[in-house]
């Protein structure tokens, strides 16, 4: 959980920041998967246990300054890959190495719809690991970026979906991250807000970070990424130049 120490040599563009080493992830489910004619005993450990092999040996190296788009069909393992890189989903085997702790963009789970936007800004900032002082300093920035100043003292559940999404994005971006993972977050809000968020992400990448972006929108992948990884059924199908990979992905449908 601690901040990893920055090594002595100055960070250069092109240095590895994230190494994914033959990563396997499995989910175990006790519910479902049991066939009606299955007469096995209740106490048997194997009852209804199903193992879903979400990632089957994924390996790649990400470098400083890269902005990597991750594409694939629903259920191909994109979100699992993001969560594993962030260290939130344990690996069944293999490992992820990183220079600093990769952070998944999103604070939705920490927020409480019954509370005002104001309280949620503070709660979200603390959830991201800011100190109360830093949270207070960032407060105005967050509110300004989300453009909901006049509704900030209303419960978040009264917000329109666009307002809620803008506030969530603004809170999530409050902490500078070296390695940022974004899961379908760009498709929110109106055109103006989308452009400003993409701008913000590009700025973060330019500060010598590494960005991963999961999206079904090939447009935003092309606009923000300089490398694309195509995940298919838990393995890497293709990895390389955005144009080529997107073309091959489209051709496969």
């Amino acid at each position: 959980m601690s901040e990893l120490p920055m090594e002595a040599p100055a960070p250069r563009v092109g240095d590895p920041t994230v190494i994914v080493d033959s990563l396997h992830v499995e989910y175990r489910s006790f519910a479902g998967g049991k066939r009606a004619d299955n007469k096995s005993s209740l106490l048997k450990r194997s009852r209804g246990t199903r193992v879903v092999h979400a990632l089957k040996g994924v390996s790649f190296v990400a470098h400083r300054g890269e902005s990597i788009g991750v594409i694939g069909h629903n259920g191909s393992g994109k979100s699992t890959l993001m969560r594993s890189i962030a260290g939130l989903t344990p690996a069944a085997s293999g490992a992820v190495y990183a220079q600093s702790r990769p952070a998944l963009l999103g604070v939705n789970a920490a927020l409480m719809p019954a509370l005002t936007g104001e309280k949620n800004v503070i709660l979200g900032a603390l959830a991201l690991g800011l100190t109360p002082k830093e949270a207070a300093e960032k407060y105005q920035d967050i509110v300004d970026f989300s453009e909901i100043e006049e509704f900030i003292d209303l419960p978040m559940k009264t917000y329109s979906s666009g307002m809620g999404a803008r506030l969530r994005f603004a809170i999530a971006m409050a902490r500078e991250q070296q390695i940022l993972l974004i899961d379908e977050a760009l498709a929110v809000g109106d055109k103006g807000f989308r452009e400003r968020s993409e701008e913000r992400i590009r700025a973060m990448r330019d500060r010598a970070g590494t960005v991963f972006l999961v999206s079904h929108s090939m447009g935003s992948i092309r606009d923000t990424c300089n490398r694309v990884i195509w995940i298919d059924h838990g393995t890497i199908r293709m990895d390389g130049d955005p144009k080529e990979v997107i073309q091959a992905y489209r051709a496969s449908k």
Binding site: E7, D15, P16, V18, G87, P90, A91, V96, Y97, P102
Partner: peptide, 9 residues
């Protein structure tokens, strides 16, 4: 070699 540490350890 690049001083990366395992994530989630």
């Amino acid at each position: 070699e690049h001083g990366l540490e395992r994530v989630g350890a």
